[in-house]
Each structure stands twice: as structure tokens, then as C-alpha cells.
């Protein structure tokens, strides 16, 4: 049982309307994507530390080894770089590995193989090698996760050509994006967020895909654009509700993929609202916030009515204690305050 289970269980989310379709938990949606991929494609296999243990990677891999056998779903040695290379090598030779990590922090041990090998081979081999692999991890938060178990590392990877990065915010997207990632012919990082895992949503049965590289409007508004991905969308939506009660209409864009970035949807919204709040689960410096801020300055400058506002983590490592953490993570109130600040400009 993961140590933060009680915390994640205590989070309260809006319940979906069962009238709209089958309701599923986030974890079930991920498991369903893995199950479908394993069923439909003999090249797919799932590996990772503890994917066959009782905790089953937060439940996302529960029962898969029983169903598909230990050849296709297996536990691995504690060798992050080695197994990243093994995954890349298998992918380069006709397989489709899904390499699962408890936390993105562990992927940092494997940057050499991810960044310098998996992401480069298609280019270095002049297009003769494909590296269709998925690297999955769940960003942690709270309950003492601290500096080494809650890092969101997508910002560090944005500048790596050859990689794709998806960050779902709903059970529907978790399933659809994972299925797209597995069928993609490139290395794709799928970063989930631990706090989304008990969120319910409408999830159709069977195969469907959410396109990589396409953002989506979660809420329409005319006064300010709130853009982000993953858990930031939950916070952004809450902030938009707060703002609505004050008469400010916020538009919320869920990027769903942070690399390649859907620039068009951000610029389209900016053209309408003229104001941009970028929200991220990671550090503001040098990451997604900075990249979108730069996008607005480069390609949307004429539309800007106020400075771009970043809401993310300060340039400080994550503290372990809830006592310090309360000052660390952005929440809906801070996002709303940021939006208010630029709407009044």
C-alpha cells in the first residue's frame, strides 16, 4: 500500500454524471489502456519495479501478469539506466515496451539512456530505427514525498528533440493518451499525477485514442486564459469557478501534451482574452511556464493586454513536511489571485 494512500483517498473531486457514460476511476482507466494494448498488440510488454507486486503500481497493473504472463508483464532489477536502455533496445527491435516508474524522480537515473539514446536513435540512424517506447511515472505530492519523491521533471525534458511528453488530467485522457503513446513510434513520456488517481470520470469501453499534441478547452471565457496540464487543470478549473463568482470569465486550456506543444490553441485563446496565466505542477523557472510565456512574447505579443503570469513552484526543492508545504504548492486561490491581478491591468 503506497504511504500516501490515505492522503489521496481524502481528496474530493466532482463526481461525473453517469448519464454521460460509463464512470471509471483514473487508475482503472490506466489499467484498461494497458490491458487493451497487451490484448491487441503482441509487441507490447510492461515492465517496472513492482508492476507485479500487491501494490501493482498504484493499482494500474493489477492482475496484468496473471492475465498476460510473466513474459509480458514483469518486475525488474533496480537498474533504472540499464532498464531504460533495455527498453530502448527492445523498442528498436520491434517491441513496444511500457516502462513504468513509481515516480519521475527515478527517471533521472536513466537520463543518459532516455535523453542521449532513446530520443536520438531515430535521428542518428537517419530514420532507419524507430524507438516506440513509453516511459510512465506518477508525480508525487504530499505526505512527506519531499525533495526526492515529488519532482515533476517534464520541464527538464522539454528541450530534448525526439521525445514526446503527455500529461493527462482526466481518466478519459489517461486512457486515450496512454493508448496513443503506446501506438506512437517515438519515445513518449507519460507523466501522471498521484493526486488525480482517485478522480472518477466518464471513460468509454474499448479502444479509443486522444491525439498527442492537441490541447482542449476545459472551460470557455473571454477575460483571461489559464493554461496548463495534469493536476494544474484541476486547480485551474477551481480557480475559474472562484473567478466566475466575481464576474471574471476565465478560459481553461488543458494542453494534455506538453511536447510537442499545441501552440495554436494557446495563441487562439490569447487572441481572445489578451491575458495569460500559466499553471504548472513543476518549477516555474526554465520549464513549461517559461516556454509558454516565451511563446506568448514571441508569437502573441500584439494580443497581450497584460504581462504573462506564471503560477508554479518557486525555485526551491520540495519540502517534506506539510508544515512547509502549505507555502510551497500553488492552489486555486493563488491562481485566481494571479488572474485577478492581470485582468485589472
Amino acid at each position: 500500500m503506497p504511504w500516501d494512500e490515505a492522503l489521496v483517498n481524502s481528496l474530493v473531486y466532482d463526481k461525473p454524471d453517469p448519464g454521460e457514460g460509463r464512470v471509471s476511476t483514473y487508475v482503472s482507466a490506466v489499467r484498461e489502456a494497458l490491458t487493451l494494448a497487451l490484448e491487441h498488440d503482441p509487441r507490447v510488454f510492461v515492465l517496472g519495479q513492482g508492476v507485479d507486486d500487491p501494490s501493482a503500481m498504484f493499482g494500474t497493473t493489477r492482475g496484468l501478469q496473471q492475465q498476460f504472463g510473466s513474459q509480458r508483464v514483469f518486475d525488474i532489477p533496480l537498474s533504472e539506466e540499464g532498464m531504460m536502455g533495455v527498453s530502448a533496445g527492445a523498442a528498436m527491435n520491434g517491441m513496444r515496451p511500457v516502462y513504468m516508474h513509481n515516480r519521475p524522480d527515478f527517471i533521472l537515473l536513466a537520463f543518459n539512456q532516455l535523453v542521449t539514446h532513446a530520443a536520438k536513435f531515430h535521428f542518428m540512424d537517419n530514420g532507419t530505427t524507430d524507438v516506440p517506447m513509453v516511459v510512465w511515472a506518477a508525480i508525487g505530492r504530499g505526505w512527506g514525498s519531499g525533495a526526492q519523491h515529488s519532482q515533476a521533471i517534464h520541464g527538464m525534458l522539454l528541450g530534448v528533440p525526439g521525445l514526446k511528453i503527455v500529461m493527462p488530467s482526466t481518466p478519459y485522457d489517461a486512457k486515450g493518451l496512454l493508448l496513443s503513446a503506446i501506438i506512437d513510434n517515438n519515445p513518449v513520456c507519460v507523466f501522471e499525477h498521484r493526486w488525480l488517481m482517485k478522480k472518477d470520470g466518464v471513460v468509454p469501453e474499448g479502444l479509443y485514442r486522444v491525439p498527442i499534441g492537441k490541447g482542449v478547452y476545459r472551460r470557455r471565457g473571454k477575460d483571461v486564459t489559464i493554461v496548463g496540464a495534469s493536476h494544474a487543470i484541476e486547480l485551474g478549473a477551481q480557480a475559474a469557478s472562484l473567478l466566475a463568482s466575481e464576474g471574471i470569465e476565465a478560459e481553461v486550456i488543458d494542453l494534455r501534451t506538453v511536447k510537442p506543444l499545441d501552440e495554436a490553441i494557446v495563441l487562439e485563446s490569447l487572441k481572445k482574452t489578451g491575458r495569460l496565466v500559466v499553471v504548472d505542477t513543476a518549477w516555474m523557472k526554465g520549464g513549461l511556464c517559461a516556454e509558454i510565456g516565451c511563446l506568448a512574447a514571441e508569437k502573441g505579443f500584439a494580443d497581450l493586454k497584460a504581462p504573462v503570469c506564471r503560477v508554479g513552484l518557486p525555485d526551491v526543492p520540495t519540502p517534506a513536511g506539510y508544515t512547509l508545504e502549505q507555502f510551497y504548492y500553488p492552489d486555486a486561490a493563488r491562481i485566481a489571485a494571479a488572474a485577478r491581478g492581470i485582468v485589472r491591468v
Binding site: M83, G85, V86, A88, M92, N93, G94
Partner: peptide
Amino acid sequence: VPIAAGAALAA
């Protein structure tokens, strides 16, 4: 080296 191991695993 791990890439080769992955190729061998695929085989």
C-alpha cells in the same frame, strides 16, 4: 550495452 541487451530481449 543495455541497448544490446534490449535487442537480445526482443529476439
